[in-house]
């Protein structure tokens, strides 16, 4: 396929003067890796090779076969000197280890992080529900706020808290509903959600 392309490119270059007359070529579709977002052939240079491989095997077995078969692996090493190869491998291994460590740390952090659902009193019998901390779960605050508004048919907005972090303010007392929604739709573990009732504190003051 690459041969056919290069010859086509050569022909096109020859007719560069009459380029405007050359028939348009069709766009080529490229597959991108779902893990690292690069074209799969470049996955091997990233730090998530293992995951990329698994992803490709699942989603595009034929390409996986082509890229990771033993023949392909052998031919790849053809033109590099042994020394450069070793150096590259060493570098890559180091990078991968670092990446793994980073992921572990992140996972641990995620486990420890909490989502707060606060019920805040407005006037006597009116409440707003404040949801803080969902950005730690790779969710976009803005879109989730919009979804809440749609789901519960109420006002839902992103506000800045005193600490400077963004939180979602939903009008009405929806703590229970939001709890369900967070666990079911967004897959946040129940242990990571904490409900706080601020109404009593406020009324006391």
């Amino acid at each position: 396929m690459s041969e056919a392309e290069s010859s086509a490119a050569g022909a096109a270059a020859g007719e560069a003067a009459a380029a405007a007359a050359v028939a348009p070529v069709t766009a080529r579709e490229t597959v991108y890796c779902g893990v690292c977002s690069l074209p799969p052939e470049y996955c091997e240079f990233g730090s998530t090779v293992k995951k990329c491989m698994d992803w490709l095997e699942k989603n595009n077995p034929s390409l996986h076969q082509k890229l990771y078969s033993s023949e392909a692996l052998e031919s790849k090493m053809g033109t590099m000197t042994l020394e450069a190869q070793q150096k590259a491998e060493k570098d890559l291994a180091k990078k991968q280890q670092k990446e793994e460590l980073r992921q572990e740390r992140e996972a641990a952090k995620k486990k420890a992080s909490l989502v707060y659902i606060k019920r805040v009193e407005r006037t006597k019998r009116k409440f707003v529900t404040v949801v803080a901390g969902i950005e730690l779960f790779d969710l976009s605050v803005k879109t989730v706020a919009k979804d809440f508004g749609k789901k519960f048919a109420c006002g839902s907005s992103v506000t800045k808290s005193a600490a400077g972090t963004e939180e979602i303010t939903v009008q009405g007392d929806l703590s229970e509903e939001i709890w369900d929604e967070l666990t079911e739709k967004y897959g946040i573990d129940e242990d990571n959600i904490k409900q706080i009732d601020e109404s009593k504190k406020k009324s006391a003051s």
């Binding site: 392309e5 086509a8 490119a9 096109a12 070529v25 766009a27 080529r28 579709e29 490229t30 074209p39 470049y42 240079f45 990233g46 790849k76 033109t79 590099m80 450069a84 590259a88 570098d91 890559l92």
Partner: peptide
Amino acid sequence: LKVVHKYPQCFPTVQVDRGAIRFIL
């Protein structure tokens, strides 16, 4: 680069060896 991937033959191209890829990335 996404445009380049769609129309690879439409741009002047040079090629590098394998050893250089990791530095480029």
